[in-house]
Design a protein around this nucleic acid. Sequence first.
DNA 1: TCGCGTCTTCCACCCTGTGGAATGCTGGTT
DNA 2: AACCAGCATTCCACAGGGTGGAAGACGCGA
Lengths: 248, 248
Amino acid sequence: MAEPGVQSVERALDLLEIMASLDGDTGLSELSEQSGLPLPTIHRLMMTLVGRGYARRLPSRRYALGARVMGLGEAAGRQLGAGARRHLARVARELGETANLAMLDGEMAVYVAQAASSHSVRMFTEVGRRVHLHSTGVGKALLGELPEAAVRDIAVRAGLAAATDRTITDVEALLAAVGEIRERGYAVDDGEQEVGVRCFAVVVPGVPVPTALSVSGPAARVSFEFGERAVPVLHEVAREITAELSGG
Amino acid sequence: MAEPGVQSVERALDLLEIMASLDGDTGLSELSEQSGLPLPTIHRLMMTLVGRGYARRLPSRRYALGARVMGLGEAAGRQLGAGARRHLARVARELGETANLAMLDGEMAVYVAQAASSHSVRMFTEVGRRVHLHSTGVGKALLGELPEAAVRDIAVRAGLAAATDRTITDVEALLAAVGEIRERGYAVDDGEQEVGVRCFAVVVPGVPVPTALSVSGPAARVSFEFGERAVPVLHEVAREITAELSGG
DNA sequence: TCGCGTCTTCCACCCTGTGGAATGCTGGTT
DNA sequence: AACCAGCATTCCACAGGGTGGAAGACGCGA
């Protein structure tokens, strides 16, 4: 490891992430406790973030993430999605169901692009949304990219909350499932995140940040026979996306 | 003024903003030129950002915003919605109808917060739901914030699907309506998204991401006389929300 | 009014970030 | 293949910027 890393920048990012994870307003001393930094240091860093619009100072003298973070987030989404969009559109067109691209973000997955199916009655996911790794197709595919120890670690840190009654909630079962996914080359989410929604997902190989591609839709249409047709398409498009993200 | 500001943090934020504004991949020396910083310094800062997932390093050795920025952005969106809630509650209380806050998200609008009316028989929208811009009050208000070319572009890309038989489905008609909205300072959705539902919407001024505030309800209660009472309230609360999102 | 917890300011130390110069790449050209 | 730009990366000595303990101000509840 031995990352060099500019100390004060890392600390500022820590603070932003703490604010994001607490997901509400945060007191100065609460930040201190979470980050292990002394109060004056945090105060100074927060002044900087507030001055730039990355944090807001509420009338209660507590802090929350600022509007500018959203602007950045949106720009990031455009950049990540821009190159991938036409590939997703191809998946959606060829298979007739919604295509998603997600990236590993800490211990969750974040959707970076989506192409809606032709008969999209409703959006199942939204770009920018973060979902758990153990209960989604893209999440499980991403876990297949990580060493077993990392999977265990994430399971402990993030927990294995049951989104539906089919969600995997046991660490050993999760590891077994992930092993199978790795061998087989694709992941299935069979109503584990949302009742009645099935999803097939594959990894986008050879990109610096673990990334996964999926198709999902109502189980009635997204059958296992559908999966047999979908998986090769996903693999092919995943390779194309690899080329796209690498080319610039 | 004379903000102190932690130098290296400010510089790192500069780099993120430059990457966002160039909206594509960026070379190291391009960053140098834009920021006025020497190359080694940028290199070090970028290593830190990449290490943390806030920037990606493409194989071409160029840089783009990373996935983690999106995650933060989404958290910020939730928090901003939370801050706005009490203002929405005030609108709902004073006007007795459901209040919504929506933000521009690509070529659609996404609801980030809602306060239900007292006699809410039913939820008309859900937080997180994405709706078309041409057929909703908030959507048309948001379009008023964009240059005409962008409106045209969205109309082409997203299409002008008819949600009801009152929906605007013609580009020129949409542009005319948007122009009127811009002049008048508020938008009306008169059963264009859902039959029997009327909605008045205004823009929340001076926030980084285009944002709109609305009240909506059954046309029987949400009459045009109601609108005359509602619009000033919306404008006032919109200004309060601006303050809330900006500084507190 | 008082007291306590939280936030803010101060300042001297010194660690951390800085950036000029030198070296190592890469991919385009003859 | 060999060469040569034009970038990117590493190095390192200097010192300016960041740090955090301590002290002071503030706000809130009693």
